[in-house]
Design a protein around this nucleic acid. Structure first.
Length: 655
RNA sequence: GCGCCCGUAGCUCAGCUGGAUAGAGCAGCGGAUUUCUAAUCCGCCGGUCGGGGGUUCGAAUCCCUCCGGGCGUACCA
C-alpha cells in the first residue's frame, strides 16, 4: 500500500466537481513536514481561495466533507490558514508493514512502464591512473545504475573510456623515446603513466616557455589597468561602476599573477632537475610530435596501432582492479576508439544535411544561444569528442534502442552537453531523452579544482587504501572497547575495515546533493559518527546481533508469524519509515539524485536506533510483541542492506 | 563581455515544482551504560536563509537588482 498515492487518489475524487483539473491540487498533498502535524498534509485549500472565492478554511472544511477515508485515517484536522492534516490509522500502518515481510522487493513494485536506460559514467582516461576526480562519476553512476535496475528498468551501463585522444600520442611518443624496459616489464601501466606525465611535463615546459613573455606582458598590462582604475575611482568615490571596475582590475591582476607564477613553477621544476632539463633540451618539439603520433594512430599507422593494441588490454585490466574494489561491473566498455569508424560518416551526414558548416577551416554546428560553435572536425582534419559523442548517441539509439541516456559527468561540461543535445535534436533524435546528470567539482584544500595534470592529485587506489587503514584502526579500537564484544580474527577485522573504509568514501560523496562542490578532506571521508555509512552499517549489525544472540531462524520467523503490533510511538515511526522505501527510490529517480536515498537510510537507521533503545526485543515478555519486534528488526536490516547495496556499499553482520 | 552554478547555524551541508515556529550531521554543553553491540540514545545551545526591492493570503524557494565566490567561453577531453 502506497499511502501517498492512495490519499492523492481520494483527494482527486473529492475535488472532482469542485475544480476543472484536480491534478495540480492533488500534488499539493505531501508527507507532513513535521510529525506533529500528522503523517501527510494537503496544502491546496489556500491555493483554491481565488478559484472558489471562499476563505481557505471553509474550502478545507468542504474538501474534508467530501473526502472518504475513514478506513485509512483518523478524522482529518484543519489547521492554520487551511492546512488539512492526515494521520494514518495505526492498524493501517501495521497492515502495510506486514505486507513487506514476505516481499522480496520490500514494497518496491517494479515500474509499470520500464524504459531502456543507458548510463554513461566513470569514463576515465585509460592512460592515467584514476584519481579523486573520477570518484563522483563512478559512484553516482553506479548508484543510479543499481537503483534503476532494481526499479525494473532495462539498464545498460557503458564506460565511455578515453582511449583514443591526444594522451595516447603522448604515451606512444614516451614509449618510443623514454621507456624503461625493466619498469615496463614489471608494471606496464605504471610505466605508461610515468611516460604520460613525463611527456606532458616536457611539453608544458616548452609551451609555457613560449607563453611566458605573453604572461609577463599581461601582468604588466593588468598592473597598469589597475593603477588607472584605482586612480579614476579615487577621484569619484561615489561612482559605483568605477569602484567595481577597480575591483575587477584587482582580480584580473591576481589571476594574471597566479597564472604566471604557476607557469614559472612548472618551468622551474624542469630546470632544477638536470636530467629533466637535458631531456627537455633534446626534445624541443615534443608537444607537436606527440600530437603527430596521435594523428598517425588515427590515420591507421601500423606501428602505432600495434603499440595501442598492446597497451589497451593492460590499461583496461588495471581499471578493472579499481572497479572490483567497488564491486562494479559495466555491461560495456566502449571507448572513444570504438566509434572511430563512424566519425567520418557523422561529419559527412551533417554537412550534407546542412546542419554543419565550415568555419575557419573547422566543421561546426552552430547552436542558437551559444557563442562558441560545436566543432565536429578541426581545421587539421582531426575529430573531437563532439564527433565521438554524436556517433555514440547514434550507436546507443540504433543498437540498444535507448529511451534515456544519462551522462554522469562533471558540471563543467554542461555547455558541451547542451550543444550535443541540441545537435541531436537537429539530427532528429527526438525519441531519446538525454540528460546530463551533472555534479560539482571535488576541490582541494585551497578551494580550487584538482588539476588533472598536476602531480600531486591523490590517486584513487591510495585513497581507498588509506581509508581502509584508517578504518582498521577504528574497528580495532571499537572491538577492544566493547564490554560484550565478539572475538574477531585479524581477517574478520580486515573485512570490516574494508567495508567501513570504502563505504565511508562512497557515502561521503553520495550524501551531498550532486550539484554541490565539495572540498576533499580525509576527516569528512573517514568520519565514523553522525550521517555516515558507518552509522547505517552499525544499525544493520545491531539488528543482526539480536538474531545472532539467540540463533533465531529468520526464515521460519518470516513464515510463522506475520502480525505487526504497534503499541509504541517508536514502533509506529519505524514502521512508517519502513514502508517508505519505494517512495525514496522513486524520489531518487525523478531527478537522478542519490542523496535522497542516503537521507532515507540515515533516517531509517536513526529511527531504528531510537526503537532499539526504547523497545526491548528479546527481553519483551509478551510473545506476540516480541515476534512483532523481531520482524521490525528483520525488515529494518533487510531495507538497510538493500538500500546500501543500491548505493554500492556493503554491510557486515558483526561490527 | 557573454553564459552557467553557488552564497542557509562556528564548520559541512539538506530544504528551492512557494506553505505552519527554516532542518540534519559535526563541534560545544548537559544527561543516560551492572548494554538485546555506547561505532548508541535523549536534551540544550546555536540562523538578519549574502544585501535591497517586487509578486503573493504566505518567499530560503519565483522575478528584478546589487555584493561576494566558482566554473565555462573556436579547434584538449
Amino acid at each position: 500500500m502506497n499511502f501517498l498515492s492512495e490519499l492523492r487518489a481520494r483527494l482527486s475524487q473529492a475535488l472532482t466537481g469542485l475544480v476543472d483539473d484536480p491534478a495540480p491540487y492533488v500534488g499539493m498533498l505531501k508527507p507532513a513536514q513535521d510529525a506533529k502535524f500528522g503523517d501527510f498534509q494537503a496544502n491546496c485549500a489556500m491555493s483554491l481561495k481565488g478559484v472558489l472565492n471562499k476563505p481557505p478554511r471553509d474550502i478545507a472544511t468542504l474538501i474534508v466533507s467530501r473526502l472518504s477515508l475513514d478506513d485509512l485515517c483518523e478524522p482529518p484536522e484543519i489547521a492554520g490558514p487551511g492546512f488539512i492534516n492526515f494521520r494514518l490509522k495505526t492498524d493501517q500502518i501495521a497492515t502495510a508493514t506486514q505486507q513487506l515481510i514476505r516481499d522480496d522487493r520490500l514494497g518496491v513494485a517494479p515500474v509499470t512502464e520500464p524504459r531502456t536506460y543507458v548510463v554513461d559514467f566513470s569514463g576515465p582516461n585509460v592512460a592515467k591512473p584514476m584519481h579523486v576526480g573520477h570518484l563522483r562519476s563512478t559512484v553516482i553512476g553506479h548508484a543510479l545504475d543499481k537503483i534503476l535496475r532494481f526499479l525494473g528498468h532495462t539498464v545498460i551501463s557503458d564506460n565511455h573510456v578515453g582511449d583514443w585522444g591526444t594522451q595516447f600520442g603522448m604515451i606512444i611518443y614516451g614509449y618510443k623515446h623514454f621507456r624503461d624496459d625493466a619498469a615496463y616489464q614489471a608494471d606496464p601501466v605504471r610505466e605508461l603513466a610515468r611516460l604520460y606525465r613525463l611527456v606532458n611535463q616536457l611539453g608544458d615546459y616548452h609551451t609555457l616557455g613560449t607563453e611566458l613573455p605573453a604572461l609577463e606582458a599581461s601582468v604588466t598590462t593588468a598592473t597598469r589597468t589597475l593603477e588607472l582604475a584605482q586612480a579614476t575611482a579615487t577621484k569619484k568615490p561615489e561612482d559605483k561602476d568605477l569602484a567595481r571596475a577597480a575591483r575587477k582590475a584587482q582580480n584580473d591582476l591576481k589571476s594574471a599573477q597566479d597564472e604566471l607564477a604557476s607557469a614559472q613553477k612548472k618551468r622551474q621544476a624542469v630546470e632544477n632537475d638536470p636530467a629533466l632539463k637535458s631531456l627537455a633540451d633534446a626534445h624541443p618539439q615534443i608537444a607537436e610530435l606527440a600530437r603527430a603520433e596521435t594523428a598517425k594512430l588515427h590515420a591507421g599507422d601500423a606501428e602505432n596501432q600495434t603499440l595501442w593494441d598492446q597497451f589497451i588490454p593492460q590499461c583496461l585490466a588495471e581499471l578493472q582492479k579499481m572497479y572490483a574494489r567497488f564491486d562494479l561491473k559495466f555491461d560495456h566498455t566502449l571507448g572513444e576508439s570504438h566509434f572511430n569508424p563512424l566519425l567520418a560518416g557523422v561529419v559527412e551526414d551533417l554537412l550534407q544535411r546542412g546542419i554543419a558548416t565550415e568555419s575557419d577551416g573547422a566543421i561546426c554546428v552552430f547552436v542558437d544561444g551559444f557563442a562558441a560553435p560545436f566543432i565536429i572536425r578541426k581545421a587539421n582534419g582531426a575529430y573531437t569528442y563532439a564527433t565521438t559523442d554524436l556517433a555514440t548517441v547514434q550507436y546507443r539509439v540504433k543498437e540498444w534502442q535507448a529511451d534515456v541516456i544519462l551522462y554522469v559527468v562533471d558540471a563543467r561540461q554542461s555547455e558541451h552537453f547542451q550543444q550535443l543535445f541540441a545537435t541531436c535534436r537537429k539530427i532528429g533524435f527526438d525519441t531519446v531523452d538525454m540528460r546530463h546528470v551533472s555534479f560539482g567539482t571535488v576541490l582541494g584544500e585551497d578551494n580550487r579544482a584538482f588539476k588533472t595534470r598536476s602531480g600531486d592529485t591523490i590517486g584513487l587506489e591510495s585513497l581507498l587504501d588509506e581509508a581502509i587503514d584508517h578504518a582498521r584502526i577504528i574497528v580495532r579500537k571499537n572491538i577492544d572497547g566493547k564490554v560484550h564484544g565478539a572475538d574477531l580474527s585479524a581477517s574478520e577485522i580486515d573485512e570490516i575495515a574494508k567495508v567501513v573504509g570504502i563505504g565511508g568514501i562512497i557515502y561521503a560523496d553520495l550524501h551531498h546533493n550532486r550539484d554541490s562542490d565539495y572540498v576533499f578532506s580525509w576527516e569528512k571521508m573517514l568520519a565514523k559518527t553522525g550521517d555516515t555509512a558507518t552509522y547505517i552499517q552499525y544499525a544493520y549489525a545491531r539488528a543482526q546481533g539480536i538474531f545472532n544472540k539467540q540463533s533465531i531462524d529468520i526464515n521460519s520467523l518470516r513464515c510463522q508469524s506475520q502480525n505487526i503490533h504497534i503499541s509504541r510511538l517508536e514502533e509506529r515511526t519505524l514502521a512508517l519509515q519502513l514502508i517508505g522505501f519505494q517512495s525514496a527510490l522513486l524520489d531518487v529517480v525523478t531527478d537522478y539524485r542519490p542523496h535522497y536515498l542516503t537521507q532515507y537510510l540515515f533516517k531509517l537507521a536513526n529511527d531504528f536506533a531510537t526503537f532499539y533503545e526504547e523497545c526491548p526485543v528479546l527481553k519483551e515478555a509478551d510473545a506476540g510483541i516480541r515476534q512483532s519486534r523481531l520482524l521490525l528488526c528483520d525488515l529494518t536490516a533487510r531495507i538497510l542492506k538493500k538500500g546500501l547495496e543500491l548505493l554500492g556499499i556493503e554491510v557486515r553482520e558483526i561490527m
